[in-house]
């Protein structure tokens, strides 16, 4: 049997605080199978993004192990490991260099990893995320939010990574643009052998894209369940139920109408 694409074992991360170390992630374990889309949900401060950053090697773990396809990840990621895992951040306004054109943003990972044929790869990468080739020499400020996020996704995919780390990739987008980006992820998933880890505060987004979901609260993992079970409200932990109820929307006390669900009839 193949080892999991990502196996996190007893991971702990703590940060320096003014009154001693602050523990952001405590004793967390989970495994993501190859080809799976795995979600992590939680509220601000739950440590969900820190888990992603620890996997990417952007923050140091203070305890535990992370293995990628059976290979232990050390304190620093090797060049090969870095090209095998790529990250997409929340805010495409902040994650793209304002004075680099789309072309330059896509050139950079290829140059770093000394990959031949940048021309062909850039054209393909742009086509893969439905970016008009005419936008290739534009600057980020000349693009819409959705186009920018497509550039960030193209930049992540251009190295053909095995693992995609998505940190709130649609939270800064309007609902119509979010729909386009989520649909793009669906297409990418069906056309590539790719494992994805999606971090989001939005249960509906996670249930839409992922097969399994981990729920985090205050640095710990409260439970892992399938998206199906989440939809059906078959959570074991009370916190998951709290999150589910909150996500279905606010209800006025004694409200004459149900409020939710908000599906077009």
């Amino acid at each position: 049997m193949n080892p999991p694409m990502i196996a996190v074992q007893n991971l702990s991360v703590s940060f320096k605080g003014p009154h001693g170390p602050v523990s952001a992630v405590r004793d967390l374990s989970f495994a993501v199978e190859p080809g799976e889309t795995f979600g992590i949900v939680g509220e601000s401060g739950s440590g969900k993004s820190t888990v992603l950053r620890a996997i990417a090697g952007l923050v140091a773990a203070s305890g535990g192990h992370i293995r990628m396809a059976g290979e232990a990840l050390g304190l620093r990621r090797t060049k090969a490991q870095r090209s095998a895992m790529q990250m997409v951040f929340q805010d495409p306004y902040a994650s793209l260099h304002p004075r680099h054109t789309v072309d330059r943003a896509l050139q950079e990972p290829l140059a770093i990893h000394a990959i031949a044929e940048p021309e062909r790869l850039i054209t393909t990468a742009m086509a893969d995320v439905d970016l008009d080739p005419a936008l290739r020499f534009r600057y980020p400020h000349q693009l819409s939010g959705g186009q920018r996020q497509r550039v960030a996704i193209a930049r992540a995919l251009i190295l053909s990574p095995k693992l995609l780390l998505l940190d709130e990739p649609t939270s800064a987008l309007d609902v119509s643009v979010q729909a386009e980006v989520l649909n793009l992820f669906q297409t990418i998933r069906s056309t590539r052998a790719l494992t994805s880890l999606l971090v989001s505060h939005d249960l509906a987004v996670v249930a839409h894209l992922c097969e399994r979901v981990a729920v985090m609260q205050r640095g710990t993992l409260v439970e892992v369940l399938t998206a199906e079970a989440l939809r059906r409200g078959e959570a074991r932990h009370p916190y998951t139920h709290t999150l589910l109820a909150a996500s279905r929307g606010y209800r006025r006390v004694g409200s004459p109408h149900e409020g939710m669900p908000l599906a077009p009839s």
Binding site: V175, S176, A179, L182, N183, L203, A204, R248, P264, S265
Partner: peptide, 27 residues
């Protein structure tokens, strides 16, 4: 939820829903 205008209806259909799985989201 029963809005008439195509824009409002499109906004509703574009959002992922916890209650009903949607294979792909309407653009």
């Amino acid at each position: 939820a029963h809005a008439r205008h195509p824009y409002t209806r499109a906004l509703l259909a574009a959002a992922p829903s916890l209650d009903e799985p949607r294979a792909s989201l309407a653009s």
